[in-house]
Write a protein that binds this DNA or RNA. Structure first.
Lengths: 201, 201
DNA sequence: ACCTGAACACCGTTCAAGT
DNA sequence: ACCTGAACACCGTTCAAGT
């Protein structure tokens, strides 16, 4: 799915300046992801991509069968990245449970990749393949959180429920991040405390 | 923005059967909202709307200047409905705080209108007017929840933070509702308990 | 007042021809 | 191997003409 870089290390790496001819599949995927994040699913159109990459539409159709082909490549690209970060999640197992949870929420709250996340989740609403990957990711995160809460001493039922609360809160934070901009990072961390501290401890 | 019903009370109210000629603005808005919910923002196209309503495209352009005009009407329609439910929210003030919170989350979890909610929030990502209304709604819900938590005896800072957690969790639940389908309505209610019960009470 | 039908510009798609 | 350029079908938009 990913084409090898045939040319010498390009001097204009991700600058949108005058292209050095010959595009790779990855160039198209990157450009599409940019449009997706900036202006939503509806905005990633062939004409616009060609304008940004300074090529004619025939070029597009040499790399992809149609617009669905591009979108699949974008989905695959994101899935790969997602698999990587999921593997990283699982390997968090060595940390103490509370630190593990803190690391997870911190990476979510502080990450600059939240824009990609929300764009992808928007896309997932109308693309089953993407929806499936998002679902797998959400479930993995859920089970990792649940495991941590179990280690913290919560009853199974209680751990399940609190894990749900935490994961939902994080997803909600992703989507409504600028609706409730009144909340500070400190307050976000306090939220983690409320959900993960045993009332009887 | 809304046209008066000129014809006699239509016998085929919302059935997609053979149309009884003459459409109102509301008919177009309803059809657009249907498409929006079913297949996302990208799917509400003039050609498709005309096919569903059994008219030619010229008919569309008699009612609206362009596709943006339709979308504005849809946004207005949704805002009106939203204002109504916000007024209802504020009038919840007479209930005891805990019952108030329970009523709010119940209406969110049980409501069949979650499909509309998520579609609108997807749309909000690329439409500033819609985004603004969603933001106002979120903030109102936040302040109502915060007020309830204050009445329950939480410190102001604590109430702010817990209100944020609850609102985020609800929004997250809206978006990821079928990712984590493992959670039962009962478990959702338990979540409310975790966030709204004072540890020292 | 509300709609049809034909016209045109624009975007997705194809493909023969170029380097 | 990767791209151009012209062709065509389809969708958004306009408008004169119909009821």
């Amino acid at each position: 799915m990913t084409a090898p870089e045939t040319c010498a290390p390009s001097p204009d790496d991700h600058a949108p300046r005058r292209r050095a001819r010959r595009l790779s599949v990855d160039d198209w995927v990157r450009a599409a992801l940019n449009l997706l994040v900036r202006d939503g699913v509806a905005a990633v159109r062939i004409t616009r991509l060609c304008a940004e990459l300074h090529v004619t539409k025939g070029s597009f159709y040499w790399h992809f069968a149609d617009i669905t082909g591009l979108m699949e490549a974008v989905a695959d690209h994101w899935c790969d990245a997602q698999n990587d970060s999921m593997r990283a999640l699982v390997e968090l197992g060595s940390m103490a449970p509370r630190e593990r949870l803190e690391a997870m929420t911190a990476s979510l709250v502080g990450d600059r990749s939240w824009a990609v996340e929300t764009a992808i989740r928007e896309w997932a609403r109308t693309n089953v393949i993407v929806a499936d990957t998002v679902r797998r990711l959400d479930r993995l995160v859920f089970s990792v959180v649940q495991e941590a809460l179990l280690e913290l001493g919560f009853e199974p039922a209680e751990a399940r429920m609190r894990a749900g609360a935490l994961v939902y809160a994080c997803i909600g934070f992703l989507h409504a991040r600028d609706s409730l901009d009144s909340l500070t990072p400190d307050e976000i961390r306090s939220t983690l405390r409320v959900i993960t501290v045993r009332p009887d401890a």
